[in-house]
Design a protein around this nucleic acid. Structure first.
Length: 114
DNA sequence: TTTCTAACA
DNA sequence: TGTTAGCA
């Protein structure tokens, strides 16, 4: 499975679709982004493009807000659970990723008959 | 038509 | 957060 085939991370959903899926207002969705809770991409026309993982994040945020947490608290929890690239754990994951790639390198062609 | 940013009753 | 104005 290569990264480009990870459907959940492909940013292709316009905000209207996200609104339909989350029941959140455009105002809320954009505000949560400004607070750093989600990071959707942008197309050439500066319009936001969301991935399914963004929708999942928004649903989680919605649930946490309903449970009484504030945006600031939710942001803190996210920062703690998402390791930075410099973290040992992230380095370990990247190392294994690279090892996997070499592991699938095509073996040398065996001399064909004739 | 939809989305974007900025700003205000 | 809602809502609206003026663009793209």
């Amino acid at each position: 499975m290569t990264e480009i085939h990870d459907v959940r991370q492909r940013a292709v959903l316009p905000i209207g679709t996200v609104i339909a899926l989350t029941e959140l207002s455009a105002r809320q969705i954009r505000y949560y982004e400004k607070q750093g809770l989600i990071q959707p991409q942008r197309n050439a026309g500066n319009h936001r493009l969301y991935a399914l993982v963004d929708v999942e994040d928004l649903l989680a945020i919605k649930a946490q807000l309903a449970s009484g947490l504030t945006l600031g608290e939710i942001k803190r929890l996210q920062d703690q659970s998402v390791p930075h690239p410099s973290d040992a754990e992230a380095r370990q994951m990247l190392r294994e990723e690279l090892l996997n790639q070499s592991r699938f390198t095509p073996a040398p062609r065996i001399k064909q008959g004739f």
